[in-house]
């Protein structure tokens, strides 16, 4: 499987948001728990809209949630 060229801090942000579960985050973003799990594990690249929604839930800018990995094209 091709590795995504970016990482994310969703797990940490969920922890800091009072151990928010993947299901809770999924409900607030409008996706399933499995989709949040796939995004968190770097298996699925979300749409820009979902990425912004996730950042919005944590009250953070997009780049605080998703980081482009240096060294990738």
């Amino acid at each position: 499987m091709a590795r995504l060229p970016f990482t994310n801090d969703i797990r940490t942000l969920r922890f800091m948001a009072g151990e928010m579960t993947q299901a809770e985050l999924g409900d607030r973003v409008g996706v399933t728990r499995q989709t949040i799990a796939a995004i968190e594990q770097g298996k699925y690249s979300p749409s820009l809209e979902v990425a912004f929604r996730i950042a919005h839930v944590f009250g953070k800018p997009l780049e605080a949630v998703f980081q482009w990995e240096s060294g990738t094209d």
């Binding site: 409008g30 996706v31 399933t32 989709t35 796939a38 699925y44 979300p46 749409s47 979902v50």
Partner: peptide, 8 residues
């Protein structure tokens, strides 16, 4: 009852 999301 969940609607399909973008990944699905």
């Amino acid at each position: 009852h969940l609607k399909d999301d973008e990944r699905e």
